[in-house]
Design a protein around this nucleic acid. Structure first.
Length: 244
DNA sequence: CGCCAGGGCCATA
DNA sequence: TATGGCCATGGC
């Protein structure tokens, strides 16, 4: 089963996800995606959304609003998302960076991935989420869910962030719409079935999954070698390598 | 209740 | 290059 096969199987199971979940309340609306990408770093989306609600209440709706927020106001608004001092700093850095392009329009047309990666507090996943979901560039987002799902199935065993990203981008049409939908479907699969403690019963990827256990009980601890629950695996064995 | 979320930075070895 | 500590809150 190739990547497109997995994609269509997930799409058939879960249907279109319609990510990113924005509510058209920021200016521009795409700015909410950028803010959300920072707020959800290692944080439940529910908590990130509380912070977004607070920003709406406080009318901190644009990059300029973030840059001009009074001392401590930003921190208080985003407190529910956790790590709030760090995240306030990261949002200020991102807002200033966007404004250095003369606003979101210039930013979205001209910014490059390496430039975004140079912004302090923005790592590869946050940057790629912004590029894909806010700007519409065809960049595949790799997150912890993606690694877990595709390691467990045996599709890919290792590799750094760029290796994983190349694997997906080289195995799919260069299409931001497909990248968005696929990543969202992977998250849905990871939440419903491929959780930390896997619930394999009914999983749409069970047939062909290397670590599937048919009767639905969680795999025995002896099958899980890493803290993230991946099965033990031989170097170079079985799965497709991340790099060519 | 304790665990842990849609990461990333930094200090250390 | 690769671990480990750190950041912090609220859902479950």
């Amino acid at each position: 089963m190739n990547l497109l096969g997995i994609y269509s199987r997930l799409l058939g199971t879960f249907g279109p996800q319609g990510w990113w979940p924005t509510k058209n309340r920021f200016s521009p609306p795409e700015w909410e995606v950028c803010v959300g990408a920072v707020l959800t770093q290692s944080t439940n989306w529910k908590n990130a959304e509380k912070a977004l609600d607070n920003l709406e209440k406080e009318r901190v709706l644009s990059p300029a609003d973030v840059a001009g927020a009074k001392d401590g106001a930003l921190e208080e608004a985003i407190r529910p998302s956790g790590f709030y001092r760090q995240k306030a700093e990261r949002l200020r850095a991102l807002a200033g960076f966007v404004m250095s392009f003369g606003g979101f329009g210039g930013f979205s047309e001209e910014v490059t991935r390496p430039q975004l990666l140079d912004v302090k507090g923005l790592g590869p996943e946050t940057v790629d989420s912004i590029l894909l979901y806010a700007i519409g560039r065809p960049v595949f987002v790799i997150d912890a869910y993606t690694r877990r799902v595709f390691t467990r199935t045996g599709f890919c065993a290792d590799g750094d962030y760029e290796g994983w990203r190349r694997l997906f981008e080289s195995g799919l049409p260069e299409d931001a719409g497909i990248y968005r939908e696929f990543h969202a479907l992977i998250v849905e699969l990871a939440k419903k079935f491929c959780r930390k403690e896997p619930l394999c019963a009914g999983c749409p990827l069970m047939s062909g999954c290397e670590s599937a256990h048919p009767r639905g009980s969680p795999a025995p601890a002896s099958m899980r070698s890493s803290p993230d629950g991946e099965p033990p695996r031989q170097p170079g064995g079985g799965a497709r390598p991340a790099r060519t």
